[in-house]
Simulated scan of single mutants.
Amino acid sequence: MYGWIWRHLPGNAWIKALTSIVLVLAVVYVLFQYVFPWAEPLLPFNDVTVDNS
């Protein structure tokens, strides 16, 4: 998969590296701004029960 992406990016190696870094940062931004806040109420991580025994 990464080879396919690398072959389809335009430019030489430096431009491909810069473009791939920008793409990774864009994906991380979208995940933190939209996907994770949407999915957080659906996950059971806050359903903690502790007894006072």
Rank of each mutant, 00 (worst) to 15 (best):
G3L: 01
I15Q: 13
I5K: 01
A13E: 03
A13M: 09
A26F: 05
D51K: 14
Q33G: 08
L25D: 11
L18S: 01
N12S: 05
W38L: 15
Y34G: 06
D51Y: 12
M1T: 04
V35M: 05
V48R: 11
K16Y: 02
V22L: 07
V30R: 00
V35G: 01
A39P: 01
S20K: 04
T19I: 08
L23G: 14
V50C: 12
H8I: 01
L31A: 09
F32R: 07
D51M: 13
N52C: 14
W6D: 06
G3A: 01
F45A: 09
L9P: 03
A13L: 05
P10F: 07
P44M: 12
I5G: 01
V22A: 08
N52H: 15
Y2F: 09
G11A: 10
P44L: 13
I15C: 04
N52F: 13
S53D: 14
F36V: 13
A17Q: 05
L9A: 00
I21K: 00
A39Q: 13
V35F: 09
L43A: 14
W4Q: 07
P10R: 07
P10A: 04
L9V: 03
S20W: 04
I15W: 05
F36M: 14
Q33L: 07
L42H: 13
A13N: 05
Y29N: 06
V30D: 00
L31E: 09
N52G: 15
W38Y: 14
G11D: 11
V30S: 05
D47A: 12
V28D: 00
L23M: 12
D47V: 04
S20I: 02
W14N: 06
T19W: 02
P37G: 02
Y34A: 10
W4Y: 08
V24A: 11
L18F: 01
L43I: 15
I5C: 04
T19G: 08
N46M: 12
N12C: 03
A13F: 06
E40S: 13
V35W: 07
Q33P: 00
K16T: 03
V48S: 09
V28P: 00
Y29M: 02
L18C: 05
V35A: 08
V24C: 07
L18H: 04
M1G: 09
G11M: 05
V22N: 03
V22S: 03
T49R: 13
A17D: 06
N52T: 15
F45R: 11
I21Y: 01
T19D: 08
V30P: 00
V35H: 01
A26L: 12
Y34C: 07
Y34E: 13
I5P: 04
Y2H: 10
Q33H: 08
Y34Q: 09
R7H: 10
L25Q: 08
L25W: 04
D51L: 13
D51F: 13
W38D: 11
W6Q: 02
V50I: 12
L9K: 00
L31N: 11
W38T: 15
F32E: 10
W14M: 02
L31M: 14
M1W: 05
V27G: 10
V35E: 01
V48M: 02
I21F: 03
L42W: 14
V50H: 08
Y29A: 11
V24T: 04
L9M: 08
